[in-house]
Amino acid sequence: MTRQSYHEGLEQLNEEVLRMGSLVVEAVDFATQAFLKGDRALANSVIAGDDDINELSLWIEGKCLALQAQQQPVAIDLRLLHTALLVSLHLERIGDLAVNIAKIAKRMDRSEVAEPYMEILRKMSAQALEVLRQGIKAYADRDAGLADSLAEIDQPIDDMFKDILSRLLSHEKGESGEAPSTEWATHIALASRYIERMADQVVDMGGRVSFLVTGQLDGKYFDRAAPDINKRFGE
């Protein structure tokens, strides 16, 4: 085999991206569980574990740089380096969001748990985890079709997020039931927002995977939902 260490380097890079992916899946899974169950120990382990994710992300960035500086990658190799760098960046952000959720899990007062909200958040978490798994699978399998479908499975999450926001706002207007404390409402709003953001990061990641496979840079994956949500949020 020619250029052995170069190709081994690419392979190793790819493997480390996948390993980072599984660490992030774990982090999201544990963070949302900690949040839903109010498990502080689990939340702490997620926060501690983020260091590993961050280091991995830096390692991947450095490896991409070194391979580009030294090996003159072209074609599939160049696309892989580009994609790996951006995917790791997305994963790192998702990891940070998981930490944010874990922090909320630690701070939130459990007595104010309101079942309807938690039910939605449970569904949102499960769906976000699914989107993340599919996103990583799309990268692992170089599956552009799967990458394209991410926006679709992300849609329910956006809808549930809007649902939570409008519910919270309806209390404010006195339309339904007793209003929860502002602190609790903020935690719920932020947690749902973080989950929604995580899934959006995965959809963007799908765009990078699509580029890896097709070589086409495409804006269709970009966060279309965001302006819409922000608008609603500001209402």
């Binding site: 480390e16 390692w59 740089l65 391979l67």
Partner: peptide, 20 residues
Amino acid sequence: PTAPGDVTPREESKMEGSPV
């Protein structure tokens, strides 16, 4: 990252200080 294959990130993460 200069030495492809020499250090695996897993080993690295155990080390202290900024790895890069």
